[in-house]
């Protein structure tokens, strides 16, 4: 055991030092890194604005999608009915939907000439949230359904035999599946904040309105401004990694 752990640690250290060495062998990246750290440390208002908007839009998307994902996910996980397997398979398959494809379809719906044109959702942060909520629906439903399904089916019966009401039995299941549901929420949020296709096509990268981390990274690359790009990429990585890590730690605690 000890030797294995040592090997793993050596491997991780090697992996990171080699990646860092590679990254710093590229001049633009080195320069960009320096300026990026400075920009972050100095609390550049543009960077703070873009980051806040990113979290806000994707956070709204995640909360919004819970409205339909929890009922559907719990139903799929708890009840047995004809076509349940088929529906679950469809949602599983949709997890990998290309964001640009969804973005294009939504653009055509939201466009002034499209069926939802009168709601003015194009170039609107609400429209982007809605689009991302739809994007992460399959992943949330699948993970929630899995989490609920994984709870020992006899638990509900047992709870009810012991005199628990329907609601109390449901609460017991929720408690048991909490970590799975939290995982679903984190996975959904991470996918939303890291995606580019939907926000690019619906939001169009408007400054202070729909310019989020991913679109800003893409834009700064085409306008030859690497430092800001790298700074934003670092922030995006920090957000995604730290949320995943915190949740991981919390789950260990809970267990």
């Amino acid at each position: 055991m000890k030797r294995n752990e040592l090997l793993i640690i050596i491997f991780i250290v090697l992996f990171f030092s080699i990646s860092l060495a590679l990254i710093f062998s590229v001049e633009e990246l080195r320069e960009g890194f320096k300026r990026a750290l400075w920009l972050i440390a100095s609390g550049d208002p543009e960077i703070i604005g873009i980051t806040t908007l990113s979290i806000y839009i994707s956070g709204t998307a995640t909360v919004l999608s819970l409205l339909w994902c929890i009922p559907i996910g719990v139903t799929l996980g708890l009840r047995d009915f004809a076509g349940r397997r088929f529906i679950t398979a469809v949602f599983n398959a949709l997890i990998g939907i290309p964001t640009v494809a969804l973005g294009l379809v939504l653009y055509l719906f939201f466009s002034s000439s499209g069926p939802l044109g009168s709601f003015d959702l194009l170039l609107n942060p609400i429209g982007v949230s809605l689009g991302q909520a739809i994007l992460i629906t399959p992943i949330l439903i699948s993970l929630v359904a899995n989490a609920v399904e994984a709870v020992d089916p006899s638990l509900k019966d047992l709870a009810e035999t012991l005199g628990a009401s329907e609601a109390e039995a449901s609460l017991a299941i929720l408690k048991e599946s909490t970590s799975g549901v939290v995982l679903a929420i984190v996975a959904g949020f991470n996918r939303a904040i890291a995606e580019l296709g939907v926000v690019q096509m619906i939001g169009q990268n408007l400054r202070w309105r729909t310019r989020v981390l991913t679109t800003a990274i893409a834009m700064e690359r085409t306008s030859a401004n690497f430092a800001l790009s790298i700074a934003l990429a670092i922030i995006l990585l920090i957000i995604v990694l730290s949320i995943s890590l915190t949740v991981n730690l919390l789950q260990r605690r809970l267990k």
């Binding site: 819970l66 929890i70 009922p71």
Partner: peptide
Amino acid sequence: SSWGKVLLLAAVLS
């Protein structure tokens, strides 16, 4: 039901 509370919270937040 407890799921309902989660949903209510999500609705209020959205």
